[in-house]
Design a protein around this nucleic acid. Sequence first.
RNA 1: GGCCCCUUGGUCAAGCGGUUAAGACAUCGCCCUUUCACGGCGGUAACAGCGGUUCGAAUCCGCUAGGGGUCACCA
Length: 480
Amino acid sequence: MEKVTVRFAPSPTGPLHIGGARSALFNYLEARHTGGRFIVRIEDTDLERSKREFEDEIIQSLKWLGLDWDEGIVVGGENGPYRQTERLEIYQQYVRKLLEEDQAYYCFCTEEELEKEREQQMAADGLVRYSGKCSHLSREEVQKRIAAGEKPAVRLRVPPGKQLEVHDYVRGDVRFDTDTMGDFIIVKNDGIPVYNFAVVLDDVLMGVTLVMRAEEHLSNTPRQLLIYQALGFPTPAFAHVSLILGSDHQKMSKRHGATSVMAYREMGYLPEAVFNFLALLGWSPEGEQEIMTQEEIIAQFDVNRVSKSPAVFDLNKLNYINQQHIKRLSLEEFKRRMRPYLENSEFSEDIKTLSEEKYSVLAQALKDRLVCLADVKDQARVFLRRQEPEKEAQELLAIPENQAMLKTFAEEFSAFDFQEAAEIKSFIKKFIKNHQLNAKNVYMPLRSALTGVTHGPDLPWLILFWDKQETLDRIWTALE
RNA sequence: GGCCCCUUGGUCAAGCGGUUAAGACAUCGCCCUUUCACGGCGGUAACAGCGGUUCGAAUCCGCUAGGGGUCACCA
């Protein structure tokens, strides 16, 4: 595969959502795989909805995911600026050219007029396109109306009866007929170019060779093709990636649950897991390995293996992938990543005063049990708090034999010194053997006495965490 | 409604004219185990339908059905 120049061009009208992140990711992967260039630029021509804080959040999200870019917003580059509102003069030159060549014309129609026209067409034959009302205004008339203070938009003349072909890496060749579209607006009456026009110019001027984006843009592509042609620019290759759907097979939206990348961070998903999961949504590697590092995915990624059909976002799978990535973390790394989730919980104070050793014990006990890092909030409770025994635990503690066993255990345990979980495990084992008991009849009452519940992390870890005194104290308390 | 795209198990998906139609998640069962997890083993489960083309179709073509996208002075 030859080197590509690709780009991700979000509009800062909201947080980066899963779908956008996947588009960004695929572009990034293709660039890194081929040794090409990845550009990130901001499409903020919608003045009403664009917000700087969204731009910041999007950038943060991309970075969190582990993406970086060679050129664009934040990092700069020779083809800047990288915010469309800062490129207005550039666009103007080309609009002027198109106007002079009569490939485009001024349109004075009002939104109300156009709205009405569309409604009528929809009711009639369903063929919605601009009537061409302003396409033959004389130069004089145009001058007069502009002088009178009217603010026109600019439309591109669409040649009738022309076939347009989009060569698409994932769809194959898709054909469109210009007869199904009318002259469309390229500059709004406030002088700001419309997305379709600005993207083309940006892509050309920045040397983009492959336009990879969501499938919803496929039907926009013929319009963009027309702009490339009018301007005399060569067209890039395209790749329209299918959408990500919710469980009801509708385009994923808020009502399907969390949609923003940041929300997944807050829930305790690892960036490398989200990276891995998103890569697998619409793309599959050649081998059977699914849990992969960023490097492994880059090495294998290929646009030609991108799927045509839309994919349903499956939280179960994300959970699994996240769990796998947590398991693969080194203990030190895990400790580092888990910390903020604990510090932002009700255990904030406990964690701050906890010794490094204790924190390490906690981490080892929990590491392979978590689906999400945020789960530590629940899982840590048993270590850090005491709770009233639940029903099942109470029942176990009410049995006389269990009480007697616990008393003996406490006595022997008070004479036992330990430093590692393994030592505690063998101590319990020996205890069971010496008293000719069966394991379950020791462990379950002991667990009940110590934690008040009948399931949870391995007992030796809990005991090691508490140390001798706290452990004994818990047993005696339970026996009362 | 016009145009365009899509259709392999519940989900992600491999497959690119000849396969017992992979694998993963989920689910179910068994094993491991003090418990819950983890891990191991195994089971259930799919080519939307109909017509072609072909010695042979999940794979190629057509139609039908279903789903989706888009028809903005949003991107």
